[in-house]
Every structure is written in structure tokens, then in C-alpha cells.
Amino acid sequence: MSSAATADASHGAGHAPAAEYTVTGVPAYKLAMWTFLGSDCFFFGSLIGTYMSSRGKSLNGPYPLDVFAPAVTSCSTFDLLLSSLFMVLAVHYAKIGDIRKFTLWTLATMAGGLIFLGFQAYEFTSFVEEGLTLKSNLFGCTFFVLTGFHGAHVALGVFLLGSLLWAVRTGKLADNGITTEVIGLYWHFVDIVWILIFTLVYLLEFTS
């Protein structure tokens, strides 16, 4: 038993111990992402709670129905949903090691995200033109902060995918399959949050 231990740290990149040992069978990065998403639930929960509790309490206009353009937002929602599908494909090809198709679908996912952000930029500017700003009323501040933070999440997702692609293409990342899957989890989560926002913020205005 004595001096059985040798220690060294001269490993190449991509040999992260975090990815090696696991008792639960769930890779460490994945577990970390799950806990992060749990935490993010409370993050968005607080924001959505703020929005919902302030709903209809604006003292002056513009009110939601004055500015919402359901057709545009439905398109951007559809686009984001579609990007989730692309994400699934990217994960699939990452797992089977088809780098070419992985690249393709990752780019498609990023494009989906960027288009969504484009829609959002368009929406925000048109709202501002109609007089709804961060300061104009309670609806303005809760709306922009909620959707703004969601947009920031999408942007971060695009950035992560870009970095992933770069790392894979330059050979800096070995266990591509699991990393892509973990980023995929994030992407889907952000997508689900949007569905929730779309329902509660937009669709609810058009019921009854």
C-alpha cells in the first residue's frame, strides 16, 4: 500500500477529470447543467412572477394590446422551436462523430437563434416607436426586462454554440458529444421558457 500513489498533471487538453469519475453515471458537466437550469427556473420564475403580478396595473398606455403584433411574434416563436429541432440533430451527429453534419446543424441552430434575436430587435424598436419604453409604464418595464433577459439567454446560447464549433473545428475539444448535449439542454430550456413567456405574456392578452 505504501507509495503506491504517483501523481502528475502533465495531461493534454481535453482530459478533464470532471468528465471521468462519476458515481451517478451522469457526466459531471451534464449534472452541473441540470442544477444550473434548476436555478434558472427560479431566475425566470421571479421574472415571470414579477410580470404576472404587475399585469394590468399600468397607470397609462401603451397597453399590451396596443403594441403586440401576434403574427410577428408567432413567426419568431416558430423559428425558435425550429432551432430546437436543429439542436437535436446537431447533438445526434456530435454523438456519432459526424463532424460535417454536426457543423451544419450547429450553424443552423445558431442561425435560428440569431433570427429570433433579429425578430426581437425589430419588435423592441417598433414598440419603442409606438411609445412603449422601459420607463413609459409598468407594462414597459416588466415586459422589456423579462423578454430582454430571455433574449440575453438566447444570445449566450448562440455564443456557446459558436465557441463549441470553434473548439471542435480546431481540435481543442475531444468529448464533443457530451458537451454538445449539455449545451443542447440549455438551448431547449431557453426554448421552453420562451413558450411560457409567449403563452403568458402574449397569448393571454388575446383570450376573452
Binding site: S53, K57, K135, C141, T142
Partner: peptide
């Protein structure tokens, strides 16, 4: 100058 917590702007 938002008014999340300011009753003057409808906040709470």
C-alpha cells in the same frame, strides 16, 4: 427610472 417598486408608476 423604471418603477418596479414605485407606486407612482403603478409598481409595488
Amino acid at each position: 427610472g423604471t418603477h418596479f417598486y414605485m407606486p407612482e408608476g403603478g409598481g409595488d
